[in-house]
Amino acid sequence: MKERQIKSIAVTAVMVLAAIIVLVPFFWMIMTSFMKTGESFAYPPVFWPKKFTLEQYTILFKRLHFLRDFVNSFAVSSLMTICSLFLNSLAGFAFAKYAFKGRRFLFTSFLATMVIPAQVGMLPVFLILRQMGMLNTYWGLILPGAVSAFSIFFFRQYMMTIPTDLIDSARIDGCSDFRIYWQIILPLARPALVTLGIFTFLGTWNDFMWPLIVLNRDTMYTLPVALANLMGEHAPDTELMMAGSVVTILPIMILFLALQKSYVSGLVAGSLKE
């Protein structure tokens, strides 16, 4: 029994040490973001500010328009999540519960698109958006990515478990199909909505390549694009860049910690279904 306890402490200690090593960059980022300009330029590296200051954050929000970038990121991610959940759950519902001609063909076609990487279509999508005047708009960021074969598949699998009789009896009561979807199916599919909602929000918030291509007007920048741009001009200002990273990462970390359970269960479900 004693030996087991010692073993347990030793293994736990190793894991805690590993976790500390993994998390050190985050700790350093947060601490450096509260330093005065130039304070981090020292050897050995500084892990604690002499005096906590909001200097960097003031520069970011007052001079460098990070609030605007934050609002852009938040708006794009929220709109994308709403659109994506609506469109994909509606399609998933049709595939799960309706018999119709071309059902198999359409569903297989959706799944087949997952084999082709998004970068392949990027050049023409850029041209199409340019033609439609949607470069530098939220919609230019949202519409090309709103439909996801993975989400449709996920919703379909989930909705297949909802008994069809439930829908049937609602129809007998004279409920329209859209109302059935809206008032019966969606509330029942809540776990799937939450999981895919977090996936979509996180994915959109963190996305870089597509916003980099679609946005070239700084008033429309999302946080990752703004940060990458800032890196071009302010790379020597370590403290400022660290503060910019904190502003970008923090909201998404809070969201993740709050909804960790649904996120991880979705992650795992995606892998087991393969």
Binding site: P25, N206, P224, A228, T238, S245, T248
Partner: peptide
């Protein structure tokens, strides 16, 4: 959760942080 944190963190932001992790001076 600790091991998973880097997965959730914005790629661009942690790339910025790691550029400083690799800095030759500090």
């Amino acid at each position: 959760a600790g091991f998973f944190a880097p997965v959730v963190a914005t790629l661009v932001a942690v790339s910025v942080v790691w550029k400083y992790v690799y800095d030759p001076h500090f």
